[in-house]
């Protein structure tokens, strides 16, 4: 009880200090100069209509490469931590088999969900979305199949190969930019008409690679978690 009271007191004090600090930050007014620059020059520089995508993939492309690496490390770390961990008292746990509705529906939904994921990452430079959400949608399609079909699995060999190929594509595109345009991850393709599907240079290529990478990584991660819990 006393512990809880102290914790509450601490939380209240921290909240008050945070509020006092945040009260000095005006809400709803422009704050950064760099954001204005990106907005004004983004379409001219890179040809992508979605400025957030342009920032993530090209202006701060190196940062995104590091982020993809962190994701890869976390997925590998999860595989390592869980390696050798298997459910021992398998008989004790009651399992309810998935119902007929679930099995039929997921079979129907699986290809469509993957198609939707692909749509999200291919249109990353035009609409909200991109490689990361698209990859997560693809992984959710696999999650549906894992939930409804006990025997069905994504072979680790294939997820690993897809992931490695997608990661290599990302780096190779960056290196081509270094060779052709003079700096790593520089745009070397024509910019096209802003708003068209084939525009924005290398943004769709990189986001497709990221979509495949995130999708296969998260699928492998789910597969790892599933092998240990079933």
């Amino acid at each position: 009880m006393i512990k809880k009271a102290f914790a509450l007191l601490l939380v209240v004090i921290i909240a008050i200090f945070l509020s006092v600090t945040f009260a000095k930050i005006p809400f709803g007014y422009p704050k950064t100069v760099v954001g204005k620059y990106y907005l004004d020059h983004g379409v001219k520089d890179l040809g992508g209509v979605n400025i957030v995508t342009s920032i993530v993939v090209l202006y701060r492309g190196f940062d995104t490469l590091g982020e993809v690496t962190v994701l890869f490390l976390a997925a590998t770390g999860l595989g390592m931590v869980l390696a050798g961990l298997r459910e021992k008292d398998e008989k004790k746990r009651k399992k309810t088999p998935p119902s007929l509705i679930m099995r039929t529906e997921t079979k129907l939904l699986f290809p469509m969900t993957i198609l939707f994921g692909a749509y999200i990452f291919i249109h990353g430079h035009l609409t909200p979305g991109g490689g990361f959400p698209g990859g997560v949608v693809i992984a959710s399609a696999f999650l549906l199949m894992f939930l409804s079909h006990k025997k069905w699995e994504a072979k680790e060999k294939y997820t690993k190969i897809t992931e490695a190929l997608a990661g290599m594509t990302y780096v190779v595109i960056g290196l081509i930019g270094l060779y052709v345009a003079g700096s790593f991850l520089e745009n070397f393709l024509p910019k096209g008409v802003p708003g068209n599907l084939f525009s924005a240079g290398i943004i769709p290529l990189i986001y497709t690679a990221i979509g495949f990478k995130v999708g296969s990584e998260l699928t492998g991660l789910l597969q790892n978690l599933r092998e240990t819990t079933e």
Partner: peptide, 26 residues
Amino acid sequence: AVDPVPQALVLTAIVIGVAVTALALS
């Protein structure tokens, strides 16, 4: 249009958050 830089940062942070949560769960 609003400032795009924080949105790009949050896009990064969400993905890292998912990965870190999965690792912590394992």
